[in-house]
Design a protein around this nucleic acid. Structure first.
Length: 552
RNA sequence: GACCCCGUAGCUCAGUUGGAUAGAGCGUGUGGUUGCGGACCACAAGGUCGGAGGUUCGAGUCCUCUCGGGGUCGCCA
């Protein structure tokens, strides 16, 4: 990666200067180097200004001395001191040009690095209750989690994407009773509808499906025979719809973790036992409460209800212990909806209490903010139990998976967003995803036009690079850095913005320079560049889970 | 009341561990493009970064206060 190479070069410059006695000694320094998108430099570092105090010298003098002692590098054309103490670095065109074959050689793995060092990471996302179809908001978490998973893999982590299925507990009981009410009705019987039952249209749809397929198999007067089996039947239908939605949105789940099977193993009892032994439990009003650790002024939360069944919180503690201890992931990332934010401190406190993650360093919880859906200019309220919400399916049917993913991935996850259905439905250039896909298709189109031209040989002519070729190629070389930043900051939208910027640069280039011309040598060189551009779009879109069409 | 997120161009949003003149898309205006696809390109207008203090060489970015919008505070999940 260019950025880290330059950083090392500057560090060498500093130590050489220190060895020569030109500047005071210091502990080793990591030079922050940033890529510039203006015309001040290709890359720059402001480290000298930060070093001023430590080294007891003026920033400008520090920068001067570093530049003076910096070893020669084949990639650097010039290094100069600017402003109050910046070091500006320019890449050598010849070196930039020589990176092109490397991009082609890496092919589908161009941009990938191994800085993750094979660390085992779990990303848990969506995990919506199987008590109804996925909401549009769940789509946001799903898309962000899926893209993050892909990006982390590309930078060298071994990642498992998991969906935690809440297929047990009170909400599932409610689902079963709600569906049963309609099921019985469909067969001409009566069963009570539960208080706080689910009101969505899909409930009667599922009931009709069960009545149709199973006839009177579950029928009894007021309650289903084998109620837990009936619940499982309803949950099964829900999960099928969820899986189909995720599949159509190009989201891959490696592992479906069943809460029910965890409960059946007795994990909750054993975790409660551990908490009790650690003195983190108190009893009051017939219920069992969790007491936060070490004088933390945290509210107490119920683990076991007075009627005897464990809460979602208790199950979640067992689940996270399973991830962090039994399955021993090096790092766990949970992606939750913002409405769960109050739950974050409790779970972390419980993990600390269990001694599973005392430093609170292994469990990382990210929150995706609310998604408002605007239909016909109206911003409606969303609620699964009321049955009033926009489903992910509606989004997919009306907008399509590419635009849906792009829209969710173009904004930072911690900012609230409004999904304007009418706007997103329009298939005009307003939607930047077409602009990006078009760039890829154009590259492919050029390659089709040139397909009877022999493959580029090793070039002897290195003066072909215009400023525009160099700009385009420099942008390609930034791709690996973008992936590292997007992964390490957990911000997939950085990749989205990069691709948009690359598309802009490419379209501009395309409009200005013809690739396939009479000049065979030049044509071959530019074909190689265009091939690298196409590869970068393909790789980037793949990580976003968006298809890269050859034609549009 | 407590806590979380947001507030940047007309609209939707970026802004890289705090760095040099605040960016993009859409919209608006003007112009270009007989070519590898016109789903394109170039140029322009448009900003007290909600407000006030503070931290320091330097703040859209960090801290405090404050205003506005959204969210969460259950023996629901």
């Amino acid at each position: 990666m260019i950025r880290s190479d330059l950083s090392a070069l500057l560090a060498e410059g500093l130590s050489a200067a220190q060895a020569a006695g030109d500047i005071a000694k210091s502990p080793s320094v990591t030079f922050a180097v940033e890529r510039r998108e203006d015309d001040l430099a290709d890359y720059s570092s402001s480290e000298p200004m930060r070093l001023a105090r430590v080294l007891g010298a003026a920033p400008k003098d520090i920068a001067d001395v570093i530049v003076k002692h910096m070893p020669h590098s084949p990639s650097v054309r010039t290094a100069e001191v600017a402003g109050p103490g910046f070091i500006n670095l320019w890449l050598k065109d010849e070196w930039v040009f020589n990176q092109l074959p490397e991009i082609h050689q890496a092919g589908p793995t161009f941009g990938h690095t191994d800085i993750g060092d094979g660390l085992r990471v779990q990303v848990e996302f969506v995990s919506a209750n199987p008590t109804g179809p996925l909401t549009a908001g769940a789509g946001r978490g799903g898309v962000v989690g899926d893209a993050l998973t892909r990006i982390l893999r590309a930078i060298g982590y071994e990642v498992t994407g998991e969906y935690y299925v809440n297929d047990a507990g009170y909400q599932v009981e409610l689902l079963g009773l709600s569906v049963y009410h309609h099921y019985a009705a469909a067969l001409g019987h009566e069963a009570p509808f539960p208080t706080d039952g689910y009101l969505g249209d899909y409930i009667s749809r599922w009931a009709a499906q069960i009545a149709d397929e199973d006839n009177d198999r579950w029928l009894n007067d007021e309650k289903p025979t084998k109620p837990s089996a009936f619940e499982a039947r309803a949950v099964g239908i829900a999960l099928n719809e969820i899986k189909r939605d995720l599949e159509d949105l190009n989201i891959e789940i490696n592992s479906w973790f069943s809460e029910k099977s965890m409960r059946d193993r007795g994990d909750i009892e054993s975790v409660l036992d551990s908490l009790e032994k650690g003195g983190h439990v108190t009893r009051r009003d017939g219920a069992v409460w969790f007491v936060g650790g070490d004088g933390v002024n945290d509210r107490e939360n119920v683990l076991v209800r007075s009627r005897g069944d464990p809460t979602y919180f208790a199950a979640d503690i067992a689940y996270h212990q399973d991830k962090l201890e039994r399955r021993n992931f090096d790092h766990v990332i949970d992606i939750w909806g913002a409405d769960h934010h109050g739950h974050v401190p409790r779970v972390k406190a419980a993990m600390a209490a269990l001694g599973v993650d005392r430093e609170a360093s292994k469990l990382e919880i990210l929150l995706t903010q609310m998604v408002g859906i605007r239909i016909d200019g109206e911003l409606g309220r969303q609620g699964k139990r009321s049955g009033k919400f926009v489903t992910l399916r509606q989004l997919l049917d009306e907008v399509g998976p590419a635009a849906t993913r792009y829209f969710f991935l173009s904004k930072a996850m911690d900012s609230q967003m409004v999904f304007d259905l009418e706007l997103a439905k329009r298939e005009d250039p307003e939607n930047p995803i077409y602009y990006i896909q078009m760039a890829h298709a154009r590259c492919a189109g050029i390659e089709r036009t040139a397909k009877n031209i022999p493959a580029p040989e090793k070039s002897s002519n290195k003066n072909w690079l215009t400023k525009d070729d160099g700009e385009l190629l420099r942008l390609l070389l930034a791709f690996p850095e973008i992936l590292v930043d997007a992964g390490m900051h957990r911000e997939p939208h950085r990749l989205t913005h990069y691709l948009l910027s690359l598309a802009r640069t490419f379209h501009s280039y395309y409009n200005k320079h013809r690739v396939v011309t009479e000049d065979e040598s030049l044509t071959l060189q530019r074909l190689s560049l265009i091939g690298a551009v196409r590869q970068t779009f393909a790789n980037g879109l793949e990580l976003l889970g968006i298809d890269a069409p050859e034609r549009m």
